[in-house]
Design a binder for these strands. Structure first.
Lengths: 338, 338
DNA sequence: ACGTTTTCTGCACACGTTTGCACGAACTTT
DNA sequence: AAAGTTCGTGCAAACGTGTGCAGAAAACGT
């Protein structure tokens, strides 16, 4: 149905070979022929078939992006960074979510493999080891975002320096005069949570403050309900903290809600800090002190990295990790203790 | 490099034709041969080439999804609905964003056309008419989400009943006793905004309340800043409203902020209602009364619709529109006026 | 005038599948 | 025992491109 280069060839009175070359600006075709054929192609509404081209060239011009949950606002921005970077290029983007479901992960990777994607960006915390092995055996570049699990030479990394971030947050609270600082974590968030907690502990140590086990709460999820529960636990302590650092902004919002419901005020009675600087962090009351993780840039760097790798000869060595640093954002949810 | 059916054929001592048929469970191949070949394929890590198959079958098993902005939380949920529906099927998903940029829109559609997607789901309010014409000339189903712009027989629609929604919201405020109700719109949101404003006006009319022009503010964007600006305008009126219906939750959050900054309280002095029921609507203070638009289902229905169309014979007639109804969610940002 | 180089174009095959048709073998029917 | 039927398999062509090689035509140098 669709018009092919053969149709154009017939109409132009040349061979389909010449048409193919003309459309690809092959130097051996005369300027005049190229112009004539391109014009004709335009007139006939010719659209090249990526399938046929891919079959011949062994390049699909498609990148796979695998995330955990699409609705995660963090991933949303990462995705945007990727999309913006890819859009001007000739690459398109396959998207799929795994949802921590091994069955689904397997299907997704299978689909990407069949489509012969030229590269994969992974932004899911949980990768089945066998699936990764399967991926590696296809010879395409793999970039992992915020996942330092793998110490694998074939895998490229782009991640944010979380340890330093929570260290800065802790420092900020210490500078305000707080001495009783708690950490509200998310056990399901794996390595990321570990890193943030580590930064918190290092921050305390640097300030010469003691590490108090009951000030460290490991909630399960990273959702607001978890902030409510965790905060209620802290409030029930004999000697509650005067400041709380949360694993992320969602939890912080939950924590604020719990504090308010207990009849206390943020930041007057307790200071609360989040992490991620989600869009709405500035609109909640009080506006949230948080750490801005460069989500968009994470996606951007991951995409750039893969494009570089693909444009390079396979031989050339590339840096196999990019570390990004975020920014402490001080708003009104943190003040000096009274 | 990759192993092909010919490799399997050689190893199995049959023709590649037989291998192809065996892998596709063609009835004319003996059970025994099928089993043997499938086992062999597994052993050799055979992965079929979607490009080659697509070339032959004229089906790519890919659906294109075109959105306006990926980071829009509304679209995020729509996307999730689509992805969840597509995932168990054999279809994969191309994602691209247009950003109201005609240049970009053109590129995106061109890419989808080259990839020969089997269908397209459009969830961008702004579609260039020429681009749509271009799309229609390829013979693939097109589903538009929340966009009733087109009255086109070749285009399928899935949308939310916005008029009824704001009518209900208005009714709710009237029931509470409000008589001075304002509407804070978003001019750039096109038809959606028109529909919501229409529902507001119908609600007033039904309650026998007068339509007061200065209570209708048409801000530009749909972001919180716009809510701040618009609300400040309303507060400056000689006779400010006692309740405000906002185009969406983002604007409502902005409006609350403006009211609070003016030294007034929500809902005590002014009631505020949003629209969309975004994730955080329940966590802001006070928790937001809003209208829950079934975002996830919108995506789900769109994807289901396209899958049905593709599985059906082309001839069979399908309903070409699905209308979904949402749900009024009453929280604490709306109370009776004092 | 000829041979040589340069410029342009076409032939034919390849990429990895699917599929209509034909063919041989085994099995059933008369 | 011949004819018809079913079953399982292979041949070859096709899908729409890209590309090495050869070859024709034109331009050049002597």
């Amino acid at each position: 149905m669709a018009v092919t280069i053969k149709d154009i060839a017939k109409k132009a009175g040349v061979s389909h070979t010449t048409v193919s070359r003309a459309l690809n600006d092959h130097p051996a075709i005369s300027k005049e022929t190229v112009g004539r054929i391109k014009l004709l192609a335009e007139e006939l509404d010719y659209v090249p078939s990526a399938a046929a081209r891919g079959l011949k060239t062994n390049r699909s011009l498609v990148l796979g992006v695998i995330v955990h949950r699409i609705e995660d606002p963090f991933l949303t921005d990462v995705l945007r960074g990727i999309e913006d970077t890819l859009n001007p290029s000739e690459y398109s983007l396959f998207l799929a979510a795994t949802k921590r479901d091994p069955e689904r992960e397997k299907r997704v990777i299978q689909a990407m493999a069949e489509r012969r994607v030229d590269g994969i960006i992974f932004s899911s915390l949980y990768i089945g080891v066998q699936q990764l092995r399967y991926l590696k055996q296809i010879d395409i570049p793999i970039v992992l975002i915020n996942n330092q699990t793998m110490q694998d030479p074939d895998v490229y990394l782009v991640y944010h320096q979380d340890v330093e971030a929570t260290r800065q947050l802790t420092q900020h609270l210490v500078d305000l005069g707080h001495r009783k600082i708690a950490y509200l974590g998310s056990a399901r968030s794996g390595r990321t949570n570990v890193k943030r907690q580590q930064g918190y502990e290092e921050g305390l140590e640097k300030a010469g403050l003691p590490l108090c086990p009951e000030y460290i709460i490991s909630g399960t999820t990273s959702r607001p309900e978890n902030g409510i529960n965790g905060m209620n636990g802290l409030l029930a302590l004999a000697d509650p903290p005067t400041a709380v650092i949360c694993y992320n902004d969602m939890i912080a919002i939950g924590a604020i809600k719990a504090i308010t419901q207990a009849g206390l005020s943020v930041p007057h009675d307790i200071s609360v800090a989040g992490f991620d600087n989600i869009d709405l962090a500035q609109y909640v009351t009080p506006p949230l002190t948080t750490f801005h993780q460069p989500r968009y840039q994470l996606g951007q760097e991951a995409a750039k990295m893969i494009l570089h790798i693909l444009q390079q000869d396979k031989g050339a060595q590339r840096p196999d990790a990019v570390v990004l640093h975020g920014e402490l954002i001080i708003r009104q949810s943190t003040v000096s203790p009274h």
